[in-house]
């Protein structure tokens, strides 16, 4: 039982970073109704921008973090302009494949500058807390706190500001939002930037927990975000949080009880089962509209 709870705790801590990735995904999906496969790779670009400063100039934590976020936002906007803004409306499949093409481009661009397999990333904290019978790693705790703070900020932004209202209006019904005088193109761009900021923070937290980065980070982040978003329900932010935490817990438990080689297998099996039996995700009813839209021909 102690093991089970310890795994659940670890899972929730790791899962909080998955939740951030899923929130970013779901924001983009919400306003665009399209899948941005390049989300992870654009975060990866940001993480490598941070690494570059760390290796070359031995920059401090704050500078590295800032560089990561700025890099992710710039890459995210590049993806938005080329794959989403420029590809005409109604061609969602083209957007998705185009974002995949840009993924390949970003990944190779990074490997040209960084030819080695891994690069160091500055750690955030190096301590371990003991709470009763349970251990908590410092980085995990910081990750969880940052993720929670960011989620609260995002909630305030979406539900307490006019900009948030515009984002919600566009994801509810783009046509109606346009008629109400909302500049949908601009809102989409800002939503992309917002998703990239969240992704950048998530990337920074993950990289500093691992204390290293690889060009494979893009693939990893895209798929973790995608799985977590689908588990929670596409286009729903509470769903993304729940999905991320659930994914973290599932992974932690299957590593403990079955072994490392079963971790992803179990996660994908759960994902598949969700898609068959509960396609709307954890929060199926709330996002019924979203899932109907997602089910439309991509």
């Amino acid at each position: 039982m102690v093991d089970f709870i310890q795994n659940t705790l670890d899972g929730i801590f790791i899962g909080s970073s998955y939740a951030l990735l899923a929130i970013g995904f779901t924001l983009i999906f919400g306003v665009m109704r399209r899948l941005n496969l390049s989300y992870g790779p654009s975060i990866m670009l940001g993480v490598f921008a941070g690494t570059l400063l760390y290796i070359q100039l031995n920059a401090g934590l704050l500078v590295v973090g800032l560089a990561t976020v700025v890099g992710a936002v710039l890459a995210g906007l590049y993806v938005e302009r080329i794959c989403f803004w420029a590809v005409r409306r109604g061609a969602a499949l083209a957007s998705m494949v185009s974002s995949f093409a840009i993924w390949m481009q970003l990944e190779e661009a990074v490997t040209i500058v960084f030819p080695d397999r891994t690069y160091p990333f500055p750690p955030l904290a190096d301590f371990t807390l003991k709470l009763g019978p349970f251990w908590v790693r410092g980085e995990h705790l910081i990750m969880f706190i940052c993720a929670s703070l960011l989620t609260i900020l995002l909630h305030l932004l979406l539900y307490r500001t006019r900009f948030g209202l515009a984002i919600r209006a566009v994801s509810e019904n783009p046509t109606a939002a346009k008629f109400m005088g909302i500049n949908t193109g601009l809102v989409v761009m800002f939503a992309f930037a917002l998703a990239s900021v969240i992704g950048g923070v998530a990337g920074y937290l993950i990289a500093s927990t691992d204390q290293q980065v690889t060009p494979l980070f893009g693939l990893w982040a895209t798929f973790k975000g995608l799985i977590a978003m689908t588990l929670g329900g596409m286009g729903s932010i509470p769903g993304a949080i729940a999905g991320g935490l659930l994914l973290g817990v599932i992974e932690a438990q299957s590593v403990w009880y079955l072994g490392t080689e079963y971790r992803d297998l179990v996660a994908y099996a759960v994902l598949f089962a969700f898609l068959v039996f509960r396609p709307g995700g954890l929060f199926a009813q709330k996002s019924a509209m979203q899932s109907r839209l997602a089910a439309r021909r991509v």
Binding site: A91, A94, A101, I102, M104, E108
Partner: peptide
Amino acid sequence: RMVVFGGLVALLLI
């Protein structure tokens, strides 16, 4: 190669 090809595909799809 992928920098070129990725860019070309993205342009083509526009």
